[in-house]
Design a binder for these strands. Structure first.
Length: 719
DNA sequence: TACTTTGTCCTTTTT
DNA sequence: GGACAAAGTA
């Protein structure tokens, strides 16, 4: 067992061998962050500065947590299971299970994923007769989660106006509902755990005394509540080792607060700030491009990556006329790379939003290239799996109304809206769960669940699940359905998943005393599972830029580099939105080891409409000398401009038919046309409405934004 | 009651 | 283009 400290660079070594003090490690992309983190833990334990039980390490993804455990297992002779290593949610869950009574929760509390949570909110909004248009469930859900992530309960919300008051009321009612049903959403896991520590001095002191070293991965992605949770847990005794990269903060939209890095330095009086700037992943040109791009951001702690690997190839830039042609080009390029001996799994196609994947998939599928799309529906989120889980949840905890409603009449058993209404009335009147309020016709359903509970009580988990799946009638139901075969296969897979969910895995996520079924349900909620089989297949990797964070590939295609898409139009309006988009682009670029392709299309089908866009401003922010244009620089765009000025002669104003989305003309201009404005410069018309003096056109001016202009007033010229 | 059709809405990113 | 809900039909 060697820690191989001699392979670390001086900064890495300094970080790994730091004493028992707080430290902030600014770890650039590809700088060996995970290695430093795990080696640090191993070093602490080896040098007897701490016992395995005295370490708490927290990550954002299950994958990162698993990787850390695996690496530690290879470095240390001790079983790393005793260590508290996991995601924020996983660790909070563990704590809440262990102290469920103090936390005011039933031992078998169930965890709501976002889908379940939305369902719960919808139910609530309906039950309270709130206006669904004024209080869209999605917004209510967002409101609740945002407040929880700020550490605020409904009673703590500042009632600035009537609408906020109503939202706060809904929040309060939602929490009551959850409490009644014995369920907990993601944000609640954290808030509950935080409140438990804050309120219960004994418990707090216990954990503060226990954890001597707290290590945090992806610190830039922590939200305010997570930061407070860490602070509380650290107390005065623990040394906090925070690793992060402000340039890779891409989750501000869901509450991540980069400011935590500065707060940490101040609050903890951090003496040691270590920068890891040597990059072991990418060639020089790729890094230079990333550095140049990110230099356009103002709010940075400052860092410049360098590599000893040599400059490598230039970045290859491709301009396509349409999204379909962009996809076709990617197919050809991938085929060429594979012909040259590249593994498909070493190639990645990245995009800003999931909607972009369809065209790409279509082209890849037609060409017979094996590919794998990350994101999308995951295993535990599939309808049939959720149904099976709902039965299991009712078996584990019958107060779970969400689960009840999901399978009450599924598969159909003749229980309709009227029966349900009766039960809901009875439940409301007696203040019980729906299950407890079952009456009349639905008695058979209650009997079914109770039978299942009895019959599975003594069975090992996989067999219990197999039994429930069979007896619930799900299999039978899907047999009669047209494409039910896949669903049945997934139900069988669920049994396998339960078998694979072994003793040791269980110990990571839950307190040891939790029963196997609840532990498995928790696992299903906290780790939605990869959605496709074929993990080991040599397939082209496709994913959003967000999901690519932390990964690396030999060659990367960064696609859809268009204004409005990347940077996304909705982000431009957000505070610091553009800087976040740029960080996103930075993350994308730094995924590539040897080769990076950048591509964009002039027109793209999005949401069933053709969109016309300008090349992304991010292309302008990369030094020309690092790039090699595969198409003449902005050639197609120029050709189109020429065409536009020629066609100008015969263009006549045309009334925009309602719902007619293709090029419509207004005041002599038409959608797709290139124009020039004295103040905003060059742009593309993306939409038009009205006629004559009322004609207005929406113009995408790239860096200057997207604007609606009255043709009669604005000094627009065809460009 | 169960299934199909129609209509309306949205549409960034995800632990 | 898709998800979901309301309305319509067997």
């Amino acid at each position: 067992m060697s820690l191989r400290l001699e392979h670390l660079n001086p900064e890495q070594l300094a970080a790994v061998t730091l004493g028992d003090e707080h430290a902030l490690i600014l770890a650039g992309a590809g700088s060996g962050k995970t290695r430093v983190l795990t080696t640090r833990i191993a070093w602490l334990i080896k040098n007897a500065r701490v016992t395995p039980g005295g370490v708490l390490a927290v990550t954002f993804t299950n994958k990162a947590a698993r990787e850390m455990l695996t690496r530690l297992g290879a470095m240390l002779p001790v079983n790393p299971r005793g260590m508290w290593i996991g995601t924020f949610h996983g660790l909070c869950n563990r704590m809440l299970r262990a102290h469920h009574r103090d936390a005011g929760l039933p031992q078998t509390f169930q965890i709501l994923d976002s889908q379940d949570q939305l369902g719960a909110v919808k139910r609530l909004v309906k039950a309270l007769d709130a206006d669904e248009h004024r209080f869209p469930p999605r917004e209510v859900q967002y409101f609740i989660n945002a407040r929880k992530e700020e550490g605020l309960r409904a009673r703590d919300v500042a009632l600035t106006d009537e609408t906020t008051r109503r939202f706060a009321d809904l929040y309060a009612a939602y929490d009551e509902q959850c409490q009644r049903e014995g369920v907990v959403d993601f944000a609640e896991l954290l808030l509950r755990s935080y409140e438990l520590l804050a309120r219960n001095e004994l418990l707090r002191e216990h954990y503060q005394a226990r954890f001597r070293h707290i290590l945090v991965d992806e610190f830039q992605d922590t939200n305010k509540l997570q930061y407070r949770w860490l602070k509380l847990l650290a107390g005065r005794q623990a040394a906090v080792f925070a690793v992060g990269d402000d340039d890779q903060s891409i989750y501000a939209f869901r509450g991540a607060n980069v400011g935590n890095m500065a707060d940490f330095e101040r609050d903890f009086r951090v003496q040691k700030v270590i920068r890891l700037e040597q990059n072991y992943r990418s060639h020089g040109n790729i890094l230079d491009a990333a550095n140049a791009l990110i230099a356009n951001n103002r709010k940075r702690l400052g860092k410049n990556l360098w590599t000893a690997a040599g400059e490598g190839e230039p970045l290859r830039v491709f301009e396509a006329e349409t999204d379909a042609l962009e996809a076709r080009w990617i197919v050809e390029e991938v085929q060429a790379l594979v012909a040259d001996g590249a593994r498909r799994a070493d190639l990645a196609v990245l995009y800003r939003s999931n909607a972009q994947s369809r065209v790409l998939e279509h082209a890849l599928f037609s060409a017979g290239i094996a590919y794998r799309v990350y994101g999308g529906l995951r295993f535990f989120e599939r309808a049939e799996v959720k149904h099976a889980l709902a039965y299991l949840r009712l078996v584990a905890s019958s107060d779970d109304d969400n689960a009840f409603l999901r399978v009450f009449n599924f598969p159909p058993r003749g229980l309709g809206a009227r029966t349900l209404e009766q039960i809901q009335d009875a439940a409301k009147k007696n203040g019980t769960s729906l299950f407890a309020a079952i009456e009349g016709k639905a008695g058979a359903f209650r009997a079914l669940i109770e039978d299942l509970r009895r019959e599975t009580a003594e069975l090992p988990l996989p067999e219990a699940i197999e039994h429930v799946v069979a007896r619930s009638g799900l299999i039978e139901h899907y047999k009669n359905e047209r494409d039910g075969a896949d669903r049945i296969e997934n139900l069988e897979e669920l049994v396998n998943a339960a078998a694979a969910f072994s003793e040791e895995e269980r110990a990571v996520e839950s307190a040891e005393e939790t029963d196997p079924l609840t532990a498995f349900l928790t696992h299903a909620a906290l780790e939605a599972g990869e959605h496709q089989a074929g993990e080991g297949q040599d397939a082209l990797q496709m994913m959003t830029v967000h999901s690519a964070k932390g990964l690396e590939f030999e060659a990367v295609f960064l696609t859809g580099l268009e204004e409005g898409l990347f940077p996304h139009e909705q982000s431009v309006a957000e505070r610091d939105g553009l800087e976040e988009e740029r960080r996103l682009a930075y993350v994308a670029i730094t995924r590539a080891r040897k080769r990076l392709y950048l591509s964009f299309a002039q027109t793209r089908m999005l949401h069933g409409q053709t969109r016309y866009s300008l090349p992304s401003r991010f292309l302008d922010e990369i030094p020309e000398g690092l790039m090699k244009w595969l198409t003449p620089r902005f050639a197609a765009q120029r050709a189109r401009q020429a065409l536009a000025s020629v066609s100008q002669a015969w263009l006549t104003p045309r009334k925009k038919a309602p719902g007619f989305a293709s090029p419509a003309a207004a005041g002599g201009f038409r959608v797709g046309q290139n124009v020039q404005h004295p103040k905003f410069g060059f742009g593309v018309i993306v939409d038009a409405e009205g006629q004559g003096n009322d004609a207005r056109v929406q113009v995408n001016f790239g860096g200057q934004g997207v604007k609606w202009l009255a043709v009669a007033v604005a000094k627009l010229q065809a460009a």
